[in-house]
Amino acid sequence: MHHPAISIKDLHVSYYGNEAVKGISLSVQPGNLIGIIGPNGAGKSTFLKAVLNLIPKDKGTIHLFGSSIQEARRKIAYVPQRNDIDWDFPITVLDAVLLGTYPNLKLFRRPGKKEKIWALECLDRVGMKDFSKRQIGELSGGQQQRVFLARALAQKADMFFLDEPFVGVDVSSEETIVKILKELCWHGKTVVVVHHDLSKAEEYFDQLILLNKELVDFGPVSEVFRTETIAKAYQGQFAFMKEIGV
């Protein structure tokens, strides 16, 4: 019962011999909102995908809720980076959210009335119910991200992984998303968010994973958020740091 939500030991991932993630070990307790922070190319997306076993790892063990990823799959919702999606795809907002009900549907079963009502509820929660019949490309960046959050909610998962959900997103959508993520954590869910930007990190997250290929630091936000550790992660990006007043 007292398994950590995520437990990682000595994770290594490389692309054709180039190491993108080096020797990361950490463990996360359920109910936390966790930010993964690091400069561009730091291996944040790679780390996330390796944790979910979407790309092969060179070394390391990963347990989610004390079991292997294969066993934990149905408890996980993943929201990909925006540019991984074809926004011209012929799918409506409601149908996109309905995809979230697929993991819990049996083979050969189609989503029915019950699933549609649930999907609309999830859309309502992110404030996008009025847009349910739109094609997904006809939305603003913030609205698109909220729809994908609704899809994740529809999965009824225990653990949520979001890759850069705030890129190209307006302020009010960002606030809606953060509010919902915090609510999820209050209900005991574990939420992991990749975020390449330091601003607001202190406000949003309980814990930070500071990444620059290696694990630079990991712990409660207040401890990680000290200038030296941040500087170590963002080597050479001081101009950017001054801008946001670190």
Binding site: L52, L54, R73, Y78, P80, D86, L99, Y102, R110
Partner: peptide
Amino acid sequence: KELLVTSFDETMGAAY
């Protein structure tokens, strides 16, 4: 169902 998910968002399909 499977063809739709993997055509639209293959990573989501793989993730679940």
